[in-house]
Amino acid sequence: MMDIAPPSPEPGRSAARLDRDRIRYAVLGAASLLLGIWLVWLGCWLLGWSLDDLGIEPRQLHGMIGILTAPLAHASFEHLVSNTLPLALLSTLTLYAYPRAARAALPMIWLLSGAGVWLFARESVHVGMSGVNHGLMFFLFLSGLWRRDRLGIAISLVVFFFYGSMVLTVLPREEHVSFEYHLAGAIAGALCSLLLFRLDPKPVPKRYQWEDEEDEEHVEDDEWELPRPHEVPVLWRRDDPGVETSRILEFPPRSPETGKPRTLH
């Protein structure tokens, strides 16, 4: 089983090896998922099977099979290609950053989004991986906000920069686009982030050398040390009662000739 220790900030050999293992695990897992949806589409295309049989038909008993199979089915080659790149990036980031949570988040998003479509969507056949993509995007974005660690925040910014427009696609925009699948996937991803964001340990924070140094004790520096408040003399206080506390200064008398005050030199 893969070592799922958190990424270490120390550039040692063991840290680099663990990080390579996490990257390999994430890439292989995402590639397996992509290979599955491409094989299903190619198999149906070569054999002439209808992909509608794999889709979700809301509130129809035979349509419940689509909860499991609908993400693997796509209406056209263009539909498949449009979902490939988001799935590759989002699933890789999920498996790399949250390997423990991904084991529960991926199945939960897959099943909960399909169940939401089967329960509440309009009468149609719903297929495609876009519901899972929306779930992964919301899961990654919100998990970084809940965790507030450096890796989680960085991934949140990356997925919102590339796929922030998914927030708008949960609303009805185009007639032949299943916004219900998008909305159900987004809700499932948000729920998974709230339940599973504590499952993976946070990366070990980097400690600098100066943080480990012990404080030097009994260091006296009279030149730079400021005096304490009670050591500062109060210059305006007179403690000697024999000293006059006030004095009146008289103005010089006016000159009788000019009427102006005399000046003293």
Rank of each mutant, 00 (worst) to 15 (best):
H126T: 01
L151R: 12
N133M: 01
V132Q: 13
S143L: 00
G131Y: 02
I155T: 01
E123C: 05
R150S: 13
R148K: 13
M129D: 04
G131Q: 04
L151E: 10
G135F: 11
N133P: 05
N133Q: 04
L140V: 06
F139G: 00
S156G: 15
A154L: 13
R147A: 14
N133D: 11
V132S: 11
G131E: 01
F141D: 03
E123F: 10
L157D: 10
S124A: 15
G128C: 02
S156W: 08
L142C: 11
L142A: 15
V132D: 12
F138C: 06
G128H: 01
L136Y: 08
R147L: 09
L140N: 07
R148W: 09
I153G: 11
D149T: 02
H134A: 12
G135H: 09
H126V: 08
L136S: 07
F138A: 11
V132M: 15
V158I: 07
H134K: 02
G152L: 06
E123H: 13
F138I: 00
F139S: 03
S143C: 05
D149C: 03
I155W: 00
R150A: 14
G135R: 03
E123R: 12
G135W: 08
V125R: 01
R148T: 06
V158P: 00
I155Q: 00
N133Y: 08
N133W: 04
A154T: 13
R150I: 12
L145P: 01
L151Y: 07
F138G: 03
M137F: 15
F139Q: 02
N133T: 00
G131R: 01
D149A: 05
S124F: 11
H134T: 10
R147H: 05
M137Q: 15
D149F: 03
G131S: 13
I153K: 08
G152Q: 06
H126R: 00
E123N: 12
F138N: 06
N133S: 07
W146G: 03
I153W: 14
I155S: 00
W146I: 07
F138R: 04
S124W: 13
W146A: 10
V125Q: 03
F141R: 05
V127F: 00
I153M: 15
I153E: 15
E123W: 10
F141V: 09
H126M: 00
N133V: 02
R147K: 08
G152P: 10
I155A: 00
G144K: 02
W146V: 05
V125K: 00
G135E: 10
E123A: 13
F138M: 06
G152F: 09
L157I: 06
S156P: 10
A154R: 14
G144L: 05
G131T: 04
L140Q: 09
F141Q: 08
G144T: 07
L142F: 14
L157Q: 09
G144N: 03
W146C: 12
G144R: 02
L151M: 13
V127L: 10
L145K: 06
V158M: 04
R148G: 07
V158C: 04
S143I: 04
E123L: 07
M129S: 08
G144D: 05
S156I: 11
G152D: 09
F139E: 01
H134S: 10
H126L: 02
W146L: 15
S156T: 15
G135C: 06
E123P: 07
H134M: 02
N133C: 11
S124C: 07
L140G: 09
G128E: 03
A154F: 14
L145A: 07
V127I: 11
F139V: 03
L151Q: 13
D149M: 02
L157K: 08
